[in-house]
C-alpha cells in the first residue's frame, strides 16, 4: 500500500467521520430526553449552587452516578437516563474519593452541610475533603441549596421531613434538658427502649468503641461527650451533651436505635450504613461508660447466654 499524503488524510478523516457518526451523532439524534419520575427543574438558587459546584471541581471526588452494585448513600435508586435531562454539563464524575451525591438532598439538614463545608472533619472526622470556608457564607449557603436538591422530588420529600423534625427537635431542645431527653427517648419504638446493651463491657470492646467514636462522633459530641465538638457552633439544635443523661433511664437500646437511625431534623445522621451491629453496640457502651457513667451492658433481661460469652 502506497502511503501518500492524500491516502493518509482522506483515510483517517473518513474513518473519523464514520466513527463519529456511529458513536456520537447517532446516539445524539436518537437520545431519549424523557424526564424520569423524580425529575423536576432546578430553582435559580439551586442552579447558582450548581455553578459553584462546577467551578470548584467537586466533580473530581463526587460522582452522581448510582450503579446496580452500589451500597452507599443513594443506592436505593439506580440512575436512569431521565434523571440527567436538566444537566448541562452532566456531572457523572469518574472517581469516588468522596461519596456519591445522586441522592444527597435531604440526607442531612442544612446546618450539617454548612458545618461540613466550613471544615469537613467537623461532621465527618474521617473525611479528606478540603475545607471550603474561604468560599464565604453566602456561597456556602447557595452550594448547600444545590446539594439539597440532588435527587429532585425524592430530595424534596426528604427535605420536607427534615424541616418538620427540625421544628420538633428545636421545640424539645428549647423546653430544657429534662423534656428534651424524655422527648428523644420517646421517639424510639417501645421495644427498643427496654433492651439493655447485650455486649458486656470489656477493655477490648471499650477500645473498639472509642475508635469508632473518634471516627464518627467526636466532631459534634466532642472528646469528652459534652456536645462541645468543633461542629457545635454551626449546629442547631446543638449536639447532645451525654453527661446529662445519667439517671434518666437511657437504655443501651435507646442509644443503639438513635445511632442506627439518626435523628432526622437534627445534624445527627444515621450510621446503619457505616457501622455494623456490634460496632454500634460498642460505641453505645463506650458513651454509656465514659460519658454517662451508667451502663446497662450485659444486664438482665439477657435471654440465653450467647455461645461466646465467658
Amino acid at each position: 500500500m502506497r502511503m501518500t499524503p492524500v491516502t493518509i488524510l482522506v483515510g483517517v478523516l473518513a474513518i473519523l467521520a464514520a466513527v463519529v457518526f456511529v458513536m456520537v451523532f447517532w446516539p445524539y439524534t436518537h437520545r431519549d430526553m424523557t424526564p424520569s419520575e423524580i425529575y423536576r427543574t432546578r430553582s435559580p438558587g439551586e442552579e447558582s449552587g450548581r455553578v459553584i459546584y462546577i467551578q470548584n471541581g467537586c466533580v473530581y471526588c463526587h460522582s452522581q452516578s448510582i450503579r446496580t452494585i452500589d451500597w452507599g448513600p443513594g443506592a436505593e435508586r439506580i440512575a436512569q437516563a431521565g434523571d440527567y435531562v436538566g444537566d448541562k454539563p452532566i456531572l457523572l464524575g469518574s472517581q469516588r474519593t468522596g461519596v456519591d451525591l445522586s441522592q444527597e438532598g435531604g440526607e442531612h439538614p442544612d446546618d450539617w452541610h454548612i458545618a461540613h463545608f466550613i471544615k469537613p472533619r467537623y461532621t465527618r472526622p474521617n473525611s479528606i475533603m478540603p475545607p471550603f470556608r474561604w468560599l464565604g457564607m453566602q456561597k456556602i449557603k447557595t452550594l448547600t441549596q444545590y446539594i439539597q436538591s440532588l435527587g429532585y422530588k425524592q430530595a424534596d420529600h426528604r427535605m420536607q421531613r427534615q424541616r418538620y423534625w427540625k421544628q420538633e427537635s428545636i421545640k424539645a431542645y428549647e423546653a430544657g434538658p429534662e423534656y428534651n431527653v424524655k422527648w428523644l427517648a420517646e421517639q424510639v419504638p417501645a421495644g427498643w427502649r427496654n433492651i439493655p446493651n447485650p455486649y458486656p463491657t470489656t477493655p477490648a470492646g471499650m477500645q473498639r468503641g472509642r475508635k469508632n467514636y473518634q471516627d464518627f462522633c467526636i466532631g459534634c459530641h466532642g472528646p469528652i461527650g459534652d456536645g462541645m465538638g468543633p461542629a457545635q457552633p454551626w449546629i442547631y439544635p446543638p449536639p447532645l451533651n451525654f453527661t446529662i443523661l445519667k439517671g434518666r433511664q437511657i437504655s443501651g437500646g435507646i442509644i443503639y436505635y438513635q445511632i442506627m437511625n439518626g435523628i432526622t431534623g437534627t445534624a445527627m445522621p444515621y450510621f446503619k450504613r457505616e457501622l455494623e451491629s456490634q460496632k454500634i453496640w460498642e460505641v453505645g457502651d463506650y458513651v454509656a461508660v465514659f460519658f454517662i457513667n451508667q451502663s446497662d451492658a450485659n444486664a438482665d433481661p439477657r435471654g440465653i447466654d450467647a455461645a461466646w460469652e465467658p
Binding site: 458513536m23 435531562v85 436538566g86 444537566d87 454539563p89 452532566i90
Partner: peptide
C-alpha cells in the same frame, strides 16, 4: 457542553 446523557457520550 451538551444536555444530559449525550454530553457524557461525547465527552
Amino acid at each position: 457542553a451538551l444536555l444530559g446523557i449525550p454530553d457524557a457520550i461525547l465527552l
